[in-house]
Design a protein around this nucleic acid. Structure first.
Lengths: 299, 299
DNA sequence: CCTCTTTGTCAACTTAGAGTCAACAGATGT
DNA sequence: ACATCTGTTGACTCTAAGTTGACAAAGAGG
């Protein structure tokens, strides 16, 4: 009996006070006169206060009703504005998009120019681009999108594959002239290999699809694709990097593939984002843009 | 799908955002987790916006959710305050009471002192006392109470009888000496009578309760009881007024009753107020005070 | 690594109460 | 006096608020 006031009743009261008639209020709220009447009766009962003195032809607010109306109207307007703002923010192409990209070559080259072009098309969207490679938590809300290589298992995330990154084993002609050419993966054990984060290199034979894993040795370990490539060109050893990392060097003949029959399993490249039933439009637009145009940036 | 946002859902969202857990919010709102979940899902769906990113163990507001929360919280607080104020105003002995009194003697003497004493007991209640005798509309909200003589029929009003006003026919000994004494009502036709608003005087015989109506004549018509009394004392004619109007004059022998066997039907004196299911406490207190103490002011 | 607990979600169900309809009574205009 | 408008009431319907219980995911804490 005390404080269980229905907000719907209050809304009805406010409309009623403005319309000055149960019938009109009913039209406004798309419901019957009787229901208006009941809601008001219920509201007054739960407040223990008469808000509206009414006869069949005339009605006016009590002093308390007037005060109550003013306050409630303000508050309901506030809520209405809040709703408008929120809907607007969801439908408009403004606001921030925060993106993280597992660093390196591809990111800086491709993603950066992809995003630049996106920003030209959507000048009101602000992009925060982060290349730090630390573990990033999408769920924490720090980022809206993350570009990632390799698998990612998390039920609340969506990983949209953008492409398979073709990885291969390369070496400089200079190195070959000096150390000879390996014919199969296990030969690598007798060669100097420049490794990124992984030293377990897996190869698949073209014909029988047999997998071979080799733990390579070498005196250089480096996570930068740039450094690896230039080091390989200098003849320091054999690298296994995405083809993208050294397309120009391959064209110039500074590097050549080591094997013909053995391939490296391609690594998928993902755009990862939160599974969100009500994705703001700007995020959806960005996602669609990336999915559609990503390929065309791969030279 | 557009704007049909349930206010209850918003309230739930606000509580949920504050509690940081569906379970706690459920306790706070005295309902089940599932329901909280449904309400939030429904709210997000009708807004088309995700407000809260949630896993089973962690949750946090989206940027839009945060903005929405802030605004809504404010507004809901506003409504909550409005409710508090209104309930408080109904339960507290403060505020105004606006009273109209059909003017004249009784009002000025009795009602005024009655109200004075009431105000002493309730110093925080402010009283607006109005003696204008114009037709007053309680329903218009201009007054909370009206003191009235005589019947009043209006279904939306309550007329609480305070007393029967004893009315009688008086004359000065001086007049009697000059014109003789009437023995029954119809004798009045041959006398000079001082009338208020009514010239149709009705009398009832003590024994057989027979009613007799006489349309009296006279060269003075006056609505002021004071004037009528003093005029009668001067020997100008016969008056028919409430006994209250001339108690002291009767005691001093300046006026005497005309008839012994014929009475004037007493007029009820009412406190009239709006039929209000949720009467503010100050009005109820006033009503009770008047009903209880009125008699004691009748000398 | 495993279990135990707790979390939010979902589907199926129950039921309170939102809302309607029709009959009514008071007020107003004609 | 009549017709027509008003808000109210009580009986009715049926939506949607809210529950229950099973479930999967995610920590917590060994």
């Amino acid at each position: 009996m005390k404080k269980q006031v229905s907000l719907a009743d209050i809304r009805t009261f406010v409309v009623l006070a403005e319309q000055g008639s149960f019938t009109k209020a009913g039209e406004k709220l798309a419901c019957s006169r009787s229901h208006i009447s009941k809601q008001l009766a219920q509201l007054e009962s739960s407040l223990g206060v008469s808000l509206l003195i009414r006869t069949t032809r005339t009605q006016h607010l009590t002093p308390q009703g007037e005060a109550f109306y003013e306050r409630c109207k303000q508050s309901l307007n506030g809520i209405s504005h809040a709703i408008d703002r929120v809907v607007e923010s969801a439908d408009s192409l403004t606001g921030n998009i925060r993106i993280n990209c597992v660093g390196g070559y591809i990111a800086e080259e491709i993603i950066a120019s992809l995003i630049s072009d996106f920003m030209v098309q959507h000048p009101d969207i602000n992009i925060e681009l982060d290349f730090s490679s630390r573990r990033v938590d999408l769920v924490s809300g720090e980022f809206d999108f993350v570009f990632r290589m390799g698998e990612l298992t998390d039920s609340s995330l969506i990983a949209r594959k953008l492409t398979d990154i073709k990885i291969n084993t390369y070496v400089s002609p200079k190195y070959l002239a000096k150390h000879g050419k390996p014919n199969e993966p296990k030969d690598l054990l007798r060669h100097r290999c420049i490794a990124g984060s992984l030293r377990n290199w897996t190869f698949i034979h073209d014909n029988n699809h047999k997998k071979v894993e080799v733990t390579v040795a070498g005196n250089l370990t480096c996570k930068s694709g740039r450094v690896m490539v230039s080091s390989a060109i200098s003849g320091n050893g054999i690298i296994r990097v995405p083809e993208l990392y050294c397309q120009t060097e391959l064209a110039q003949g500074l590097l050549v593939p080591v094997f013909e029959q053995w391939q490296v399993e391609p690594t998928p490249f993902y755009l990862v984002y939160l599974q969100d039933r009500h994705q703001p439009l700007r995020l959806k637009v960005f996602k669609d843009y990336v999915v559609e145009h990503f390929i065309s940036y791969l030279i």
